[in-house]
Every structure is written in structure tokens, then in C-alpha cells.
Design a protein around this nucleic acid. Structure first.
Lengths: 258, 258
DNA sequence: ACAAACGTTTTGTCAAGCCGAACACACTCG
DNA sequence: CGAGTGTGTTCGGCTTGACAAAACGTTTGT
């Protein structure tokens, strides 16, 4: 996880604890009090209290001795997404892109220095990975992320790059900021970004930025990803980039003229 | 809101406060500290502390003087939904139903006595309403809810009905439990449920239960809803019910044989 | 039948969440 | 142009209530 700093003292530790419990509940699907308490190093009684409170609020459901994440989070998530109008216009176009290319396509939006997938469309043949809607993605090690950063305003780019942790996820991962900068320049000129096993071995991706049609600032990014066995040759280097870039442009136009 | 009881003392009040803030943030899209503090009757400094904590966790984003719900909730919501396998099989079938019928279709799952929409598909002509994915719905005043309750185990039905608040939402809303019971019997026999302006004036809906193919217990419900101007005659009374019931059956079969 | 593991309940204590007041800043209006 | 009101933020003291540890009741498996 390229989770961020937090050097300063937080204010409400109790809330933080509740969310740590919730996130852990999301990882395993359904688990008991003791397992949570052990893995989080919190006393059982405390975990129990939190779970009871969250249950009454409807954000956790109790199923015998197991607790699971409640569906109420769908409401909060959807509300948050509604505020980004990009989602609405990107959804249908992304679906048609998947219909044309196959594989998997995802739409990313940046929020507070990290990228988050707001939509994902899968073809039948798509590879199952760990990326879902709501997944937090590194901006420097994905096709969407690099396509996005390539059109990021310079001043904000610096602060984002400073916060980046260049942990080497595969042998192909870029590990220094300077190499990333030069690649970003290439991407900006070319119009789309590649990801060749930088994050997951055996997976390739092509991403393109979604730009506002009037002032040209970047709204998000879209990518197609699949296994290297299918993503290769001119299909990977030319045809797919062409289609992704075209979809990105259509979304950008629709997004600007609401 | 048919929000529930909670007469007993909760355990972690701080967490409860955080979620009250988050829910309020979702209602208005983006607002400031003072507005939140006033409407929740919490001191400004407390609200500020909570917001800072939530911001560091990524669940709230700060945009100048405004705070908004963060997209991280998409992750939690999606995780919660993944645990319900009904979603995966219902999604494609719901989309085809919308393609055939037009209007709007939604899939509901019950959790802890309330119904929650886990998926929604809209045709171009669909009416914009306040129901989204994650919306909590009354089980007694919607087509999905009644279709679901009609196949609910008797013992659990009693407890659910006891907790129901029969607030009259439109002149057509059912207001006593006995009338609801007899209607549920009719629905169970007929196989589908109607909603004729019981929740929203001008809106009609047809819902059918999604039943497990082996033991017949109810997994959820699906409905199509639209304006009375288009939903009428045999279309409303026969053709649409036929299609909804058929989709529900298909989903039920696919859900049982994973 | 015992033991080990679980979830829940209880108890006391001290940290920490809460509030109110003061602060800094941005606007508006007379 | 300042007085005035509206923000969001910071500060300090008080007391609440969140926390951990241990006791309790049930279930599991050997």
C-alpha cells in the first residue's frame, strides 16, 4: 500500500479505529471478534463495542458469530460518486470499449493524490484481478495513473511525486522520480500510456487521459488491461491504444458539454 | 425513514457521531463545518476534528472550505456487495430486462430488516427519482419489498412487521399490518407484486421475488418502475409482470447453481 | 468429560473526545 | 474604509466515555 504519511497527531482516534475494523472486515469476508482483535492488536471488548455500534448503524451485519460489512456502504459510495459527473458519461462509453476490445476496462479519478477506480467493465474473458471499483491505485505504476499524471499541472505534480513511495512491485516497476518524469513527457506527447508488467507480472495495460474539451485539464483516465499472452504485437502497440484514446476523447467531450 | 429503534445505550458514541456527519455530508453534496455543526447540534470544533480524521483516512475530501464524501466508500460498498453473490448473477439479467421493458429496474436485498438496492439499471427514458444503489427502502411500501415479504419465513415476518412504522407516504399507502398480510398472501399466490402510487404519486411498479431454485427461500427481489402515464392497461397488469417474473426466475436459477 | 476457543458482559481507570471561547481570515455593507 | 458578520481553525480545561483485563456463559472438538 502506498498509504500516506500522517505524521501529525490525528484528532479522533476512535473513528480511526472503527475504520480500521471496517477495512479489515472488508478484506476477509466475514470474520469474528477474536480474529479482528488479534490482527489489529485491540482488545476483544473494544472490537465488540465498535461492532455493536456499527451494527446498530447498519454498516455492519451480524450473522451468528460472524460479522460482515453492511450494504449501507453502497449508499455512501454511490453518493460520493454522484458528485463526480465523469462517472455518468464514462459508463456507457466504457462498456462499448469493452465490447470492442474485450478484456477489462476501468475508469480512474484522482482524489487527494491517489487514484481510485470509479467504474470497471469486464468482458467474459477478462482476467480476475484484485482491482475493483473503489480500489486505490498507485499513480506511478499503472497505465491509468501515468496517463493521468502526464497531464497534471506541474505545481501539483511536484507535491504528488514527493509523496510517492517507489516500492518495487515487479522487476519492471519504475523506481526513481526522474525516469518517471521523462516517461510522463513521452506519454503526454504520444497521447496514451503503457504498463508492461510494472505492477503485476503477466499483465499489460494501455491507458489514456480524459481531458476537458475546453480548457484541456485532466478529468481522469481510462485503461484497458489484459494478459501479455493476448496483449501483444500491433494489437497492444497500436490498435488498442487507438481505441482507448478515442473512447477517452469521447468521454472528455461529453463530460465538458454535460 | 423507517430507521430502527435503538433504545438501548450504544457503546461507541464517537463512531456514531462520525457516521452522522458522513451521512449528512452525503445528503448535501459538499458543505462546510458550520452547516454540519448547526444541523447536527454538535460543536464546530468537534465536527472539525472528525472531518480532519476522516480526511486523513481518505473517506472525506477537503475542497477549499467545503468537505465532500470520499470515493473510498466505493471500495467498502463494493466489498460488501461482493459478499452477496446475488449481485453478480442479477446484473446482466437486469440489464436485459431494462432493454426489453424500458423504464427502470432495481434489485433489492434484505439486510437486518430493511431492503437495500444493490443494483439499478436505467433506460434512457427512465424517470429520475431519489432511489439509487444503496438506498434503504421500506419493505411494506414498495413492489420489491412486498414481493420479498410475501415469501419471507413466517416467524421472521412477525418481527419485521412489528418494527415497521406505517407512515402514510401517499394517500395510497397501506397503513395497517392486517391489510398488508392479506395482500402478501395474494402476492405469494400470484407470483408478483404491484405498487400503485403507494410511495410516490405518479409512479407505479411491478416486483417479483427472487427465489432459490432448490429450497425456495427468498434471496431478494427485482422490480420495474415507471410513471403511471406509461405504466397502464395490460402492459402494466400483464405484460410487464410476466417479464419481471421471468427475469426473477432466471436470476433465482442462476444464483442457486452458482 | 475435559479443555480450548469463542463471543459477551462487567469493572475501574485514565486518556481523550467534547465544548466554549478565542483566534485568523474573508467577505459585505453602510 | 473600518465595523460587522460570516467563515474555518486553534487552544485549554473538564468530564465523559472509550479502553483493556479479567470474569462469565456457550459451544467445539478431542
Amino acid at each position: 500500500m502506498a498509504r500516506d504519511d500522517t505524521p501529525n497527531a490525528a484528532s479522533v482516534g476512535t473513528t480511526e479505529r472503527s475504520f480500521r475494523i471496517l477495512e479489515r472486515l472488508g478484506d476477509r469476508e466475514g470474520c469474528g471478534v477474536s480474529e479482528l482483535a488479534d490482527s489489529l492488536s485491540i482488545s476483544k471488548s473494544t472490537v465488540h463495542n465498535h461492532l455493536q455500534t456499527l451494527r446498530e448503524l447498519g454498516y455492519v451485519v451480524q450473522d451468528g458469530d460472524e460479522y460482515r460489512l453492511g450494504l449501507q456502504f453502497l449508499g455512501l459510495g454511490d453518493r460520493a460518486r454522484q458528485h463526480h459527473d465523469l462517472y455518468h458519461v464514462a459508463k456507457p462509453e466504457t462498456d462499448s470499449l469493452v465490447e470492442a476490445v474485450g478484456e477489462r476496462a476501468q475508469v480512474m479519478v484522482e482524489e487527494d493524490g491517489v487514484g481510485i477506480y470509479v467504474y470497471q467493465s469486464l468482458a467474459d474473458q477478462a482476467v480476475r484481478t484484485d482491482s475493483h471499483i473503489g480500489t486505490v491505485v498507485d499513480l506511478h505504476a499503472t497505465a491509468v495513473g501515468k496517463a493521468y499524471l502526464a497531464h497534471f499541472p506541474d505545481d501539483r505534480l511536484d507535491t504528488v511525486l514527493d509523496r510517492l513511495v517507489f516500492d518495487e512491485q515487479t522487476p519492471q516497476t519504475l523506481t526513481d522520480a526522474e525516469a518517471l518524469r521523462t516517461e510522463l513527457d513521452e506519454i503526454a506527447e504520444r497521447g496514451y500510456a503503457f504498463n508492461d508488467e510494472e505492477r503485476t507480472v503477466g499483465m499489460r495495460a494501455v491507458g489514456a487521459p480524459i481531458l476537458s474539451a475546453d480548457d484541456g485539464h485532466v478529468l481522469g483516465a481510462i485503461s484497458v488491461s489484459g494478459p501479455t499472452t493476448r496483449m501483444n504485437g500491433t494489437w497492444y502497440h497500436e490498435e488498442v491504444p487507438e481505441m482507448v484514446a478515442q473512447s477517452a476523447q469521447i468521454i472528455g467531450i461529453r463530460a465538458t458539454y454535460s
